[in-house]
């Protein structure tokens, strides 16, 4: 007999993500509309629907290593097309926060050059720091 139930630590990971995002991740049936509409999917190593599948399988290490969660710009394109009403932008935020809340920063603010500071508008700096630092 093959045991197909998930280990407890995988269940805990899924529960944590569902709580932090407020989304029912298990509803996803892999239609792929999120990935089809994503304007930045070209640059992602895992497509948004794959990210959801990884979470459903409790593959925490693997999913937290993908670049997708940092390429996502929280544009809500995926969220509005999901037929199962999963706000995928919130899932991406939850995954980012799992990393950022360990006090790991995904952006080194000291590496931005002087010329870039002179050019970049406040709106871009504030937004990126909100998304890439804790």
């Amino acid at each position: 007999m093959v045991d197909i139930t998930l280990d407890q630590d995988k269940k805990d990971f899924i529960a944590e993500i569902e709580k932090l995002s407020g989304q029912k991740i298990m509803r996803c049936y892999q239609c792929g509309r999120c990935s089809a509409g994503c304007p930045l999917a070209d640059y992602m190593d895992l497509l948004p629907n794959q990210v959801i599948k990884y979470v459903q399988l409790g593959l925490d290490k693997e999913v937290l290593e993908c670049n997708t969660i940092w390429v996502c710009a929280a544009c809500y394109r995926c969220s509005v097309v999901c037929p199962k009403d999963i706000d995928i932008a919130r899932l991406m935020e939850a995954l980012r926060l799992l990393i950022l809340r360990d006090d790991i920063e995904k952006m080194d603010i000291n590496k931005i050059k002087k010329e870039e500071y002179a050019e970049l508008p406040q709106i871009a700096l504030v937004a990126s720091m909100r998304k890439y630092t804790s």
Binding site: I109, Y117, A118, Q122, V126, T133
Partner: peptide, 15 residues
């Protein structure tokens, strides 16, 4: 002195 000078020296203020 530019509008971004303080942010350039202390980028953490945008946080």
């Amino acid at each position: 002195p530019m509008e971004t000078t303080l942010v350039e020296h202390y980028p953490e203020i945008v946080k």
